[in-house]
Design a protein around this nucleic acid. Structure first.
Length: 568
RNA sequence: UCCUCGGUAGCUCAACAGGUAGAGCGGCCGGCUGUUAACCGGUUGGUUGCAGGUUCGAGUCCUGCCCGAGGAGCCA
């Protein structure tokens, strides 16, 4: 994994450049790009900093105003000419690269034909990421990012800077930087983009992620002064924040959650890829309901209806007969009018499917996968979880085996909870007849009784999907299993052993009033080498919410889609 | 679809019993060498969700509507 950017590729900043002149005023967006290139790439800054060519050749470089690519070099700058000739395809070369060559021969370029003298420039500080800052203590480095917040103490300013990989405090002392640098820091508004150079030092007072390190600023270049930023570092209403989701994701909590999400997704893929699973994508546009029960989003498919997928499972079942162990990983769409913190209309789900696998083996796979996800997050995202103030002790207990209880036992447990509680409201909520699926209150109360995720298996056949294998000797119960996360988080996976007998499957389609024609291909899978097989789906957002300890799924996905929201 | 709560400055909220619409934050100006959502002084900021009604007078009371949130239902 690259941890630093090569200075050769990013020679964009020169220490001791007069910042006041290098800093653009706020620009209309149409001109911003060329303005940025001008600041990044134009040698005007360095030439001025090191002693300008008296003929002002550099000002004629077209890169500054027109193109990010190769500048013109005026007659008389022989080193510049030679550098140009060395480039086989000069037109393809960014001027940043060009400038790095110039830097190597800076004595030459600065000693133009008119004899103007220039000083050798200081070596450029390496451009680094905040997440790697601990490797650079005592060194001068350059960071590129955005101003998170600023505290002005008069002759001293604290800049909280983020670069996508972390947050760090940069300290600007008036005495230690050129006047223009201090002035530039004063002008910075929240979320202004900047390039800052300074000496890395350890200081326990410095906040941030990772924290404990700060940058003693030596130079600062402003890229853009941001307009007044709508989101302040304080509490806001949910509606306001969701309207500004495109900006909200920059804030610390959201940043931390979404980094955990990325790790959850990678852990899922890592584990499956290294346990014999092959990733096969299943269609998102589908001809009919997979289950026949849920409400789907309908689209116009060249005059015919097509529906956004709510599951790739049926296709996975085809895929296992070609590949053995497979998984699909994609978005899932549900048009139900659910209006709770546990539901999104668009969410992500991984669905493994395994040939020659019964329900018990399925549970073993699930608990291993879930354990791997949790342990990977604890190991690799400790900083983010700390920022979220997640108590990780419950997560540390997550390891196989998870408790397994049957639906019947769960009902007994619920009855017992109703006996014990004084809360009349809760007593009412927990009422349930044999044959019904659990609602949120049931799941919540059940999981409070366990420290680890708990499997509930053997649900009533009528409460589940048509394709589930009946329990041997108890046809009213099926070989299904849900995994309920602890701490009240509820269902994070749902799975089952699938029916492998074609006749039984056909009978079930009839009982569920599903059109057999649409499922002919699915029945085929039972006609040609049918084997016992099982699979499950794991909801990414619910898993992320549980691991992060957040109470609403909408924060576990970058741009949530809910009943009342498709913007931004 | 049902229940509950809410909509006042850019943001978070206040405004007693119907009587001049306010505070903090943010922005702007000034001060401060260790701030952690800094602090201090000054300053800026309003179609009180929309429509109608009662009243001398409505953010406040009444009617209707719109929007949002939480929960239920629904939901592998």
């Amino acid at each position: 994994m690259p941890v630093t950017l090569s200075p050769q590729r990013n020679p964009v900043f020169t220490p001791h450049t007069p910042v006041a002149e290098a800093t653009p005023p706020p620009q209309p967006s149409a001109t911003l790009r060329s303005q940025l290139w001008s600041d990044f790439c134009s040698p005007i800054g360095p030439m001025q900093g090191g002693g300008p060519c008296s003929q002002g050749h550099v000002r004629t470089w077209s890169s500054a105003a027109e193109s990010p690519y190769l500048p013109e070099v005026p007659d008389g700058c022989e080193d510049g000419r030679r550098a140009l000739r060395r480039n086989k395809r000069p037109g393809r070369l960014p001027c940043c690269s060009f400038w790095s060559r110039i830097r190597i021969t800076s004595e030459g370029i600065l000693n133009c034909s008119d004899g103007a003298q220039g000083k050798r420039r200081k070596p450029m500080a390496p451009v680094v990421y905040i997440q790697d800052i601990d490797r650079y203590v005592g060194q001068e480095v350059t960071l590129r990012g955005w101003l998170y917040s600023r505290t002005d103490k008069g002759k001293l300013q604290f800049l909280q800077v983020r670069d996508g990989t972390g947050f760090i405090q940069c300290v600007v002392f008036q005495k230690e930087v050129p006047e223009s640098v201090f002035a530039a820091a004063t002008r910075l508004t929240q979320e202004s983009s900047l390039i800052v150079t300074g000496i890395v030092r350890q200081d326990p007072r410095a906040p941030g992620v990772p924290g404990g390190y700060e940058l003693g600023v030596t130079d600062l270049q402003v890229i853009q002064i941001a307009d007044e930023y709508p989101i302040q570092p304080k509490e806001h209403g949910v509606d306001f924040l969701l309207d500004h989701r495109h900006l909200w994701i920059r804030s610390r909590r959201q940043w931390a959650i979404l980094r955990v999400r990325a790790t959850v997704i990678r852990a899922i893929r890592d584990w499956l890829d290294s346990h014999g699973f092959i990733n096969l994508d299943t269609p998102i546009l589908t001809p009919a309901a997979c289950e026949g029960t849920t409400t789907l989003f309908q689209t116009d498919y060249f005059g015919e209806p097509a529906y956004l997928s709510q599951s790739g499972q049926l296709y996975n079942e085809a895929n296992i007969y070609a590949f053995g162990r497979v998984y699909c990983f994609g978005p899932t769409f549900r048009a139900e009018k659910s209006k709770t913190r546990r539901h999104l209309t668009e969410f992500w789900m991984v669905e493994p499917e395994i040939a020659f696998c019964d329900l018990e083996q399925l549970m073993e796979i699930e608990e291993q996968l879930v354990t791997y996800i949790v342990q990977t997050c604890l190991r690799e995202r400790a900083r983010e979880l700390a920022l979220l103030e997640r108590d990780t002790r419950p997560l540390e207990k997550v390891e196989p085996p998870f408790p397994r209880i049957s639906y019947d036992e769960a009902l007994e447990l619920l009855a017992q909870i109703r006996e014990e509680t004084e809360d009349e409201n809760l007593k009412e909520l927990l009422k349930i007849e044999w044959g019904s699926d659990f609602g949120s209150p049931h799941e919540t109360e059940l999981t409070k009784r366990f420290e680890k995720p708990v499997f509930v298996y053997g649900y009533p056949t009528k409460a589940k999907a048509f394709y589930m294998e009946p329990w041997p000797g108890r046809p009213e119960v099926c070989k299904s299993v849900d995994l309920l996360a602890p701490e009240g988080y509820g269902e994070i996976t749902g799975g089952s052993e699938r029916i492998s007998d074609p006749d039984l499957l056909i009978q079930r389609l009839k009982e569920w009033n599903l059109p057999r024609e649409a499922f002919e291909w699915y029945i085929d899978l039972r006609r040609y080498g049918s084997v016992p097989h099982s699979g499950f789906g794991l909801g990414v957002e619910r898993t992320v919410a549980w691991i992060c300890g957040i109470d609403h799924l909408r924060e576990a996905i970058p741009f949530p889609r809910t009943l009342k929201r498709v913007y931004p």
